[in-house]
Design a protein around this nucleic acid. Sequence first.
DNA 1: TTAACCGCTTAACACTATTTAACAGCCTTT
DNA 2: AAAGGCTGTTAAATAGTGTTAAGCGGTTAA
Lengths: 232, 232
Amino acid sequence: MENKNTTILVVEDDENLGKMLSDYLKVKGFEVILKRDGEAGLKGFIESEVDLCLLDVMMPKKDGFTLAKEIRGLKSSVPVIFLSAKTMEEDLKMGFQSGADDYITKPFSMEVLMLRIEAIMRRINQIEDNLLHKKEFDINEYKFYPEKQLIIRGDFEKKLTSKENELLRLLCMYMGNVVDRNDALNMVWGDDNYFNSRSMDVYITKLRKIFKEDENIQIINSHGKGFKLLVD
Amino acid sequence: MENKNTTILVVEDDENLGKMLSDYLKVKGFEVILKRDGEAGLKGFIESEVDLCLLDVMMPKKDGFTLAKEIRGLKSSVPVIFLSAKTMEEDLKMGFQSGADDYITKPFSMEVLMLRIEAIMRRINQIEDNLLHKKEFDINEYKFYPEKQLIIRGDFEKKLTSKENELLRLLCMYMGNVVDRNDALNMVWGDDNYFNSRSMDVYITKLRKIFKEDENIQIINSHGKGFKLLVD
DNA sequence: TTAACCGCTTAACACTATTTAACAGCCTTT
DNA sequence: AAAGGCTGTTAAATAGTGTTAAGCGGTTAA
């Protein structure tokens, strides 16, 4: 089953606090990956599909800010919450500017933590919501109008069927990122059974044909995972 | 009580609370679909004609906000009530802006829940009622007067037959959104049998002919779903 | 009263969208 | 490198739609 779970990477050198955070978040239904220092943290990030990072600022081997920068290098959209001592608060405020970031000063209550996490998740959901209702997407030289079920490049115009349309909309929403096969099936076909899956493959072929003139547009398969729309 | 035909999707991971909600709502005459997590919730929504969603915010696999977003993607007009812990109240208030949304903090009484549900249903009925009795619709440069069964653009005037009129009224009420084929049949023809369905296709053709002068007005078919009136 | 008309339904046929099937090729694991 | 599952592609079968025109019952006007 494709985990649409929210996975949180927790990097905290204090063993007690780390365990406590991990347990609490697991109870709340999150997948948790717990690491004790910056280096292990980076490995943890690479190995899993992390949705959100909870990073201690002061840690051995590699501090939280540095780790955050490295993570951003790998996937720029991952939101990060920093954990730090109260005494460093002023310092912290200037330490990051990315809109996805947030911070909490120790000591903190689990409720406060949950508020921050929920706030971030909502921010992300809102972004996705906007994408869902976006009027037009740019796919290199093509314009895609989901509401009109239409693709245009110069004189070229192509009406899309509803399945083509919804599938392409999804790919555009996650442009550059892999859309999970089962997620796509559930969203477009309403069921992720075998036959719909094959049907989707047929539609991927159709979409590829539409864009075959343009070498810079590719729909790439990620074996066993799904597809991504890539524009060079 | 006219709760008979209203189907409520309840997604709640706490088994006791879920059962309790379900039983209570059934006693009140609602159809209830109960699911225990976000993924099952989405499937439940796809499988049935859901009129209203009652979603726990914090759930395993997929949280309530994410689920709501996906449901909105499938049918943007479905009202959602979120269930969440008291401690997150302030946070919640800002978390959603859709007029159809509402929230309740745990613990709550069943009476409070019923009040919320009734309020939402009243709001929806009122909106539909207003649209139903709307005196005129703007369809790009055309004016459509359902009561007069008349369409006007400049000199051009076209009297509509009652079937044309009711079908166009429906399309206008859901302007930009797909009107479900069977819904339309039941509303305009009173029965969604095969022959009425073919009859409706004939009327769609008639309506298209009326607007064929104007490239910006389209009646688009959504295969296997229905039709939408789209004005660019 | 009958002929013309009108609104709607039914039939017929062409066409389109989607699913299913079949087979070839590819990726990952052992 | 062989096996098995996953993907790519094409073509067929099925299901849904678009359009035109004939048919049918009811109303209107000579």
